[in-house]
Design a protein around this nucleic acid. Sequence first.
DNA 1: AATTCATATTCCTTGACAAGAATATACCTG
DNA 2: CAGGTATATTCTTGTCAAGGAATATGAATT
Lengths: 107, 107
Amino acid sequence: MDLLTLYKCLSEPNRIRILNLLKEGPLCVCQIQQALDEPQVKMSKHLGYMKERGLLLSTRKANWSFYEINWDAHPLVRPNIEGISQSFAENIDFTKDVKQLEDSFCP
Amino acid sequence: MDLLTLYKCLSEPNRIRILNLLKEGPLCVCQIQQALDEPQVKMSKHLGYMKERGLLLSTRKANWSFYEINWDAHPLVRPNIEGISQSFAENIDFTKDVKQLEDSFCP
DNA sequence: AATTCATATTCCTTGACAAGAATATACCTG
DNA sequence: CAGGTATATTCTTGTCAAGGAATATGAATT
């Protein structure tokens, strides 16, 4: 994955929110969807966008697709994704996202 | 400057090439233009884009505008711009840019 | 004041991509 | 196989931004 592609992945608020959740580990689409309180199609498309470009990996288990960050995609992946949570604290409501993630369930 | 804006600035190859040159210090538009061998309007617009968003600073001396990186714009500016030269070595012809910069002159 | 040089702005066309609606696929369970 | 659930794809529409051509501004020189 080249750096330009990485930056394109990072240039979208919904994707930033998703990455902030995935930072802790893999999640299935339904949990992300609940945490961000956004329509399924929207999440699926952003996840697909990042997977297609190599930033995410996915595995399917039965009905569920689990996505996780591909930390090896590029050396700058880690510093940027680790920098996200502090940097966006004021602009994007991450606290709400994380809280809703805790309340979410994957049936 | 928020992180999302930073990523938008970084998501464009011409801007990446410009930042790679500015990494070493301030330059005037005509030098950048010569180094990258691109039309003046194009360079001016990309420089304006980044200045408008806080990533670059500019000072005018007589006919010339000098642009430099605003390293304090965001904590992630430095690691990303420092990571650029290695990361793009294969994709973008930075060596040529830098060589042409050496040959460039500011009248 | 007129000219010249460096830089910036405006207008237009084009392409990428985000969002929503509708639909399709994949996989399990009865 | 039928039906349900989780996820993905297609289509359309609107917005943002990149590129080029032409023009405008700002500042020095004659």
